[in-house]
Amino acid sequence: MRDASVSRSEAARAGRTALSGLAGFTSGDALASAVLTTAAPHPMAVYDRRAHAALRSLGIALTHSPGRYDRYIAVIDRLLPHAPDPARTWTPREMDTALYCLPLTSRTPAGT
């Protein structure tokens, strides 16, 4: 995860694979991503259902098939260079926090 010679998504894949044999890490990416982000806070980002839903609300599909975490990191890597300032200089961790905070619906409540 800290090897600068590999892409962030490759590092994410390697880290996720390393954790997959441990109890509690065989499926799902939320807990594993939190552990990987704790170990390498600048290159990694936390994945959870809110970040997934936020990407979907932006029109970015992220399937649930194996390899989702490294694809998530790759999506963040594609988003950051095209973000407006100052978001362009954010770390992946800052981007995942923004995704977590993104409103998931633009609909107004009934009756307003």
Rank of each mutant, 00 (worst) to 15 (best):
P41N: 10
R107K: 06
G24Y: 07
R68V: 13
T112N: 13
R16D: 14
Y72A: 10
A14Y: 01
C101R: 15
A83V: 08
V75L: 14
P81L: 04
D3R: 12
C101A: 15
L80M: 07
M44T: 04
A34G: 04
Y69S: 02
A74V: 08
A32T: 13
A23W: 03
V6L: 09
P43M: 00
T112W: 15
R49W: 02
S65Q: 14
R56F: 14
R71Y: 09
P86S: 02
A61T: 12
G28H: 06
T91E: 10
L19Q: 12
L62N: 04
A30G: 07
L104M: 00
A11V: 08
P66I: 00
T108W: 11
D3E: 10
I76S: 08
V35I: 15
L102R: 11
G59F: 09
D3V: 02
D96E: 13
G59M: 06
P84A: 06
P103K: 05
T105S: 14
P92I: 03
T108V: 13
L102S: 05
P43E: 07
A87G: 06
D70A: 12
H52C: 00
I73N: 07
A40W: 03
H52P: 02
T26I: 02
S106W: 09
G59R: 09
A45S: 08
V6D: 04
T17R: 12
S9I: 01
L31T: 14
E94I: 03
A98E: 11
M1C: 00
E94G: 02
A4Q: 10
A23T: 13
W90H: 11
A98I: 02
P92Y: 01
D85G: 02
R107I: 11
R78E: 15
H52N: 11
S57K: 10
C101Q: 12
A4L: 12
V46R: 08
L58R: 12
T26D: 09
P109H: 09
A40G: 00
R88C: 09
L55G: 07
R93I: 06
G111C: 08
G21C: 03
R107G: 01
A87Q: 12
T89M: 03
A83K: 06
T108M: 10
S57Q: 08
L36F: 00
R16I: 06
H52G: 01
R68W: 09
R2H: 07
A11K: 10
D85V: 04
A83M: 14
L104D: 09
D29P: 00
L22G: 00
S5K: 14
R107F: 10
F25P: 04
L80F: 05
Y47L: 14
R56I: 14
S65A: 15
P92W: 00
R68L: 15
T37D: 06
G28M: 06
T91L: 13
A34C: 01
Y47S: 01
R56G: 14
L31D: 10
D3N: 15
L31I: 14
A40F: 02
A87I: 08
L62C: 07
D96V: 04
A87H: 10
G24F: 08
T91R: 13
L58D: 10
V6W: 06
L80K: 03
S106K: 14
P84R: 05
P66W: 01
